[in-house]
Design a binder for these strands. Structure first.
Length: 487
RNA sequence: GGGGGAAUGAGCUAACCUGGUAUGCUGCUAGCUUUGGGAGCUAGUUGUCAGUGUUCAAAUCACUGUUCCCCCA
C-alpha cells in the first residue's frame, strides 16, 4: 500500500477507511461510527490525560447530557456563542416536553448550576472536577471525521477558585498538562496562543488555545483553557464566604481537550505513505508476531510464536500472533496500515538460528534478535520503543519548527502561507478594535489571526522612522500575532 | 453561509448522453493447493440512495429529499 501523504486530504480519507478508524455510512450528517481500532487508542489517550488531571487534584464526575433551556440561557455571551449550534430535545414519550432541553454542546451551564449548590465556603475551594463525555454541536463548517464532527468526544474540566490568581495558576497548569500529555506522550507539537479578544470562548475573559499543524500547513485547535473570571459565577450565583465573613463570587476556569480531535492530530502528525504510525504507548496492539509457515512446519513455528508471546505478555506488552490464513506480505501491509509499532517475524529459518526478526514500523528497520536469552529480546523491544518515542517526537518537532515564519506585509504573508504554517506578523492590537484588521487578513490572505504567544516578551519596535507597522492598517504595531490557515 | 461534483452488492466499477435481461474486479463462504512483502484454481454469494412524476417500460429523463466529497467565506 502506498498513499502519498503529500495530498493530505486524500491521504486522510484513505487512511481512515483502510485502517478502519471510523465508518461514515451511519447516515446523519456529521455523525460517524468510531471503530474499535480508533476507540482503543482514544481510550489510552483518555487514560493518560485523566491521570494527568487527577495527579493535579481533579476528580471525575458525570453530568447529564441534557441541559434545560433555562440553565443554558443564564450567561448572555455564552448563549450568543452556542445557541446557533445547539441540538434541542423538544419531544419525549410522544409529547412535547415542558421545557426545551439542549443536548450539551459544552457543560458549563449544567455543572455551574450544581456548583452553586455545592460551594459554600473556603473549605469547598478549590473545586476541580472533570468529566469524560461526548458533546453535540450543529457545525455549519464542512465536517471531517475526528477533526470536526457534530458529535465529538472530549474531557472537560471545570475549576473554581477563591481568587483570580488561583484561577490564573490553573490556566498555566492546564497548559503544562497539554505539554506533558499531548507533546510529551502523544508526540504532537503545538503552540499555545492567547486568542485575540474577538476570538475567545463565549463567556470567557481570555482564551488560551493549543494549535497544532496538519501536514498541509493548516492549523488545528487542540485543547483550549479559558479564564472565565466571574462571568459565570455571577450568572449562576456561585458564592463562597471569605475569611472576613463576606460572600464572594468564585473565579473560574474551564479546559477542554477534545480527545477525538487530538487523535486526528496524532494520525496526521505521525502517519506516512504506508498508513498510521502510532507512538508505542498509544498503540492498541504494540507487537504483532507474523509466523512464516510451511505446511510441515506449522506446528513447531506456531509453538515458538506462542512461547515468545507468552513471555512478552508477562512484561505487560500487548501482543498478537497473526495466524490467519493470509500470506505474510498481506499481513505486513495490513499491520503497517494500522500502525502497529513492532513486528516480529518468525519462521523455520529463524528457529534454526535461535533468533527472530524485529521490524520497526516507523523506519522499517529490520534487526535479527537472538532468542537464546529472552531478556535480550525484551531489551531490544524496549530500546526500539524508546527510540521510536524519541524519534517520532524529534521528527515532528523539527518539521513543526520549519513551519514557523515571519512576515511584515500582506503580500509577504500570502506568500509565506504557501509553504509555512504559523506566520508571525506585527499587528496593531489584539483587543476588540483589531478585529477589522483580522477581517482584512482573512480577506486578503485567507488566514486567521490565532493570537499571541502566551507571556511572550517579544514586542515589535514601532518607534519611528522605520518602526514596525500593523500588517493590515499600517498603524504602529503594538504586538506580534500569528496568522495561519485553519481547519 | 456560498458554489461545484457525486451516490449502482461489503468496497471499487461498466451500462446513463441515445429508457428495454445490470458488467467486471476485489471481498465474503466452501474445498483443494499455498505462505520470508498484498497467493492460485473451482464453486457459491449479495446491488441501481429514498420518495414522487413522465412512460408500455426508469440505473438511465424530471422534480424533491438525504448523505458523501471538493472549493470559497
Amino acid at each position: 500500500m502506498n498513499i502519498p501523504k503529500s495530498n493530505f486530504s486524500e491521504w486522510y480519507n484513505t487512511i481512515i477507511k483502510e485502517a478502519q478508524l471510523c465508518d461514515l455510512r451511519y447516515g446523519i450528517k456529521g455523525f460517524v461510527v468510531f471503530m474499535p481500532w480508533a476507540v482503543m487508542t482514544m481510550n489510552k489517550m483518555y487514560g493518560m490525560y485523566e491521570r494527568s488531571l487527577e495527579v493535579r487534584g481533579h476528580v471525575p464526575a458525570l453530568f447529564p447530557a441534557l441541559i434545560p433551556e433555562s440553565y443554558f440561557m443564564r450567561e448572555s455571551d455564552h448563549v450568543k456563542g452556542f445557541v446557533p449550534e445547539v441540538f434541542w430535545v423538544t419531544e419525549a414519550g410522544g409529547n412535547k416536553t415542558e421545557e426545551k432541553y439542549a443536548m450539551r454542546p459544552t457543560s458549563e451551564t449544567a455543572m455551574y448550576t450544581m456548583y452553586a449548590l455545592w460551594i459554600h465556603g473556603m473549605t469547598d475551594l478549590p473545586l476541580k472536577i472533570y468529566q469524560r463525555c461526548q458533546v453535540w454541536r450543529h457545525e455549519t463548517k464542512a465536517t471531517k471525521p475526528f477533526i470536526r464532527s457534530r458529535e465529538f468526544h472530549w474531557i472537560e474540566a471545570h475549576d473554581c477558585f477563591a481568587t483570580r490568581e488561583g484561577a490564573m495558576a490553573q490556566v498555566k497548569e492546564d497548559m503544562a498538562m497539554a505539554e506533558e500529555v499531548i507533546h510529551g506522550q502523544y508526540c504532537v507539537p503545538f503552540i499555545f496562543f492567547k486568542r485575540p479578544q474577538w476570538d475567545k470562548f463565549a463567556g470567557a475573559e481570555d482564551t488560551y488555545a493549543a494549535d497544532a499543524l496538519m501536514p498541509d500547513g493548516r492549523t488545528l485547535q487542540l485543547p483550549s483553557t479559558h479564564m472565565l473570571g466571574q462571568h459565570f459565577s455571577k450568572a449562576f450565583d456561585i458564592k463562597y464566604t471569605d475569611a472576613s465573613g463576606k460572600d464572594e463570587y468564585v473565579w473560574q476556569t474551564c479546559y477542554g481537550p477534545a480527545i477525538s480531535r487530538i487523535y486526528a492530530a496524532v494520525i496526521a502528525t505521525h502517519g506516512d505513505d504506508k498508513g498510521l504510525i502510532l507512538p508505542f504507548d498509544l498503540a492498541p496492539l504494540q507487537i504483532v508476531i507474523v509466523p512464516i509457515i510451511k505446511p510441515e512446519t506449522k506446528d513447531s513455528v506456531l509453538a515458538n510464536c506462542e512461547e515468545i508471546k507468552n513471555f512478552l505478555v508477562k512484561q505487560n506488552l500487548t501482543v498478537k500472533i497473526d495466524d490467519s490464513e493470509r500470506t505474510p506480505g498481506f499481513k505486513f501491509n495490513e499491520w503497517e496500515m494500522k500502525g502497529v509499532p513492532i513486528r516480529l517475524e518468525l519462521g523455520m529459518r529463524d528457529i534454526e538460528s535461535n533468533s527472530v526478526i524485529l521490524v520497526r514500523r516507523d523506519n522499517g528497520q529490520k534487526t535479527k534478535v537472538s532468542t537464546l536469552d529472552p531478556k535480550l529480546l525484551i531489551e531490544k523491544i524496549e530500546e526500539s520503543a524508546n527510540n521510536m518515542r524519541l524519534e517520532l517526537k524529534k521528527k515532528a518537532d523539527e518539521w513543526f519548527e520549519k513551519k514557523l515564519a515571519t512576515a511584515e506585509t500582506m503580500d509577504e504573508l500570502s506568500k509565506k502561507l504557501e509553504t509555512s504554517g504559523f506566520i508571525q506578523v506585527p499587528f496593531c492590537t489584539d483587543q476588540m478594535e483589531g478585529e477589522k484588521c483580522a477581517d482584512l487578513v482573512r480577506e486578503k490572505a485567507q488566514a486567521n489571526m490565532r493570537g499571541s504567544i502566551f507571556e511572550s516578551k517579544e514586542k515589535p519596535d514601532s518607534a519611528k522612522p522605520k518602526g514596525k507597522k500593523c500588517i493590515a492598517c499600517q498603524k504602529p504595531a503594538a504586538i506580534y500575532l500569528y496568522a495561519a490557515r485553519q481547519y
